[in-house]
C-alpha cells in the first residue's frame, strides 16, 4: 500500500494474552526446566541423602534465590517506564510460569527436610507467595469479563457523577417535605457511603446501606402522606430507587476491582517477608551450618 517508508522501530503488537504469550513460550521453558531439575534430582548420587548441602542442592538453591529476586523485580519493571523495547506482558508471562516452577525447584532444594526453623519459614512463605499469585492468575483470567460486562461503556467517573446528580435531584425534590420525612432523606444524602472500607469492597457487602434503610423508612411515611407531601414523597422514593441501582452498579465495579487488587495485599507483603526470610536463610547457612 501507499505507506511512506517506515523506521525500524518496533511497533507491532500481537493479540495474545499473557498466559498464551508467544505460543506459551514460558510455559515450555518452565516445563523443560522442571523436568531437567527432576531428572537431575532422581539421578544424583547424594550422600548421605539429598539436601540443600549437596552440589545439586547448592545449585538449586542458587537458581531458586536468583529466580525469587528476579521475580520480585517485576514490581520495579511495571513502574519503570523506560524507552527500550521491553514488554511487560512477556515479563508477566515469565513471572507466572517461572514462579510456578519454583515449587519444584525449591522443594527439591530442600531434599524434603522440613522443621521449625527459618529455612522452612522461607519455604513456607514462598509457597504462600506462589499460592496468592495463583489466585491472582485465576482472578486475572476470569474477572475482566465481569468487570467489562458490569460497566458497559460507563466510566467510574460517570458512575460517581450519576450518583451525585441523583443526590442533587433528591435534595431538590425533598424541599416540600415535612421535617420528619426530610430526616429520612438526609439519611440517604448524608450517610450513604459509596465504596466503604477494604473488607466491604472485598466482599461487596452493602446490605446496611443508608440509602436502602431510607427507602425502607419511607414506606410507612408514604402510606400516611396526603396531597403535596405524598407527591413529593413518591418522587423522592423513585429517585432513591434509581440511586440504589446506580449505587449497585458502582459498588459491583468497586468490588470486582477490589478482588483484582486484593490478592496483591497478600502477594506483595509476603514477597517482602520471603526476601527477608531468604536472606536470613542464606546468611545463616553460610555462617552457622
Amino acid at each position: 500500500m501507499a505507506r511512506a517508508a517506515q523506521s525500524k522501530r518496533r511497533k507491532t503488537s500481537t493479540h495474545e494474552s499473557f498466559l498464551r504469550h508467544r505460543g506459551f513460550l514460558f510455559l515450555k521453558v518452565s516445563t523443560i526446566l522442571c523436568i531437567g531439575v527432576v531428572l537431575a534430582y532422581v539421578f544424583q548420587d547424594a550422600h548421605p541423602r539429598p539436601s540443600g548441602g549437596t552440589a545439586l542442592g547448592y545449585a538449586l538453591g542458587t537458581l531458586g534465590a536468583l529466580l525469587i529476586v528476579w521475580l520480585g523485580l517485576l514490581g520495579l519493571r511495571k513502574r519503570a517506564i523506560t524507552d527500550g523495547p521491553y514488554s511487560l506482558k512477556a515479563w508477566v508471562s515469565a513471572h507466572v510460569y517461572l514462579g510456578l516452577s519454583l515449587i519444584v525447584i525449591a522443594t527439591l532444594h530442600t531434599g524434603f527436610h522440613f522443621g521449625w526453623n527459618v529455612h522452612t519459614l522461607a519455604y513456607g512463605l514462598m509457597l504462600l507467595v506462589i499460592a496468592s499469585g495463583a489466585v491472582g492468575v485465576w482472578f486475572y483470567a476470569t474477572l475482566p469479563k465481569a468487570l467489562s460486562d458490569n460497566r458497559g461503556e460507563t466510566t467510574r467517573k460517570q458512575m460517581l457523577a450519576q450518583i451525585h446528580a441523583l443526590d442533587e435531584q433528591i435534595h431538590e425534590a425533598a424541599q416540600p417535605l415535612a421535617r420528619v420525612d426530610a430526616d429520612i432523606v438526609r439519611l440517604s444524602l448524608e450517610k450513604t457511603d459509596i465504596g466503604g472500607g477494604f473488607w466491604r469492597r472485598l466482599f461487596g457487602y452493602y446490605g446496611d446501606c443508608a440509602n436502602l434503610r431510607a427507602i425502607d423508612q419511607l414506606e410507612p411515611a408514604l402510606a400516611d402522606a396526603k396531597g403535596r407531601e405524598a407527591v413529593a414523597l413518591r418522587k423522592v422514593e423513585e429517585l432513591m430507587r434509581r440511586k440504589a441501582d446506580a449505587l449497585a452498579l458502582a459498588r459491583r465495579q468497586i468490588h470486582i476491582t477490589a478482588l483484582l487488587e486484593a490478592w496483591l495485599f497478600v502477594h506483595v507483603p509476603s514477597t517482602f517477608a520471603l526476601l527477608a526470610a531468604l536472606t536470613a536463610h542464606i546468611v545463616s547457612v553460610f555462617l552457622y551450618w
Binding site: 522501530r9 518496533r10 511497533k11 503488537s13 500481537t14 493479540h15 495474545e16 494474552s17 499473557f18 498464551r20 504469550h21 511495571k78 517506564i81 523506560t82 524507552d83 527500550g84 523495547p85 521491553y86 514488554s87 511487560l88 506482558k89 515479563w91 508477566v92 486475572y140 475482566p144
Partner: peptide, 13 residues
C-alpha cells in the same frame, strides 16, 4: 525505540 508505551506496559496483553 520500544514503541508505544501503553502497549509495552500492559501486563496482560
Amino acid at each position: 525505540a520500544g514503541g508505544p508505551a501503553c502497549v509495552r506496559a500492559c501486563p496482560t496483553g
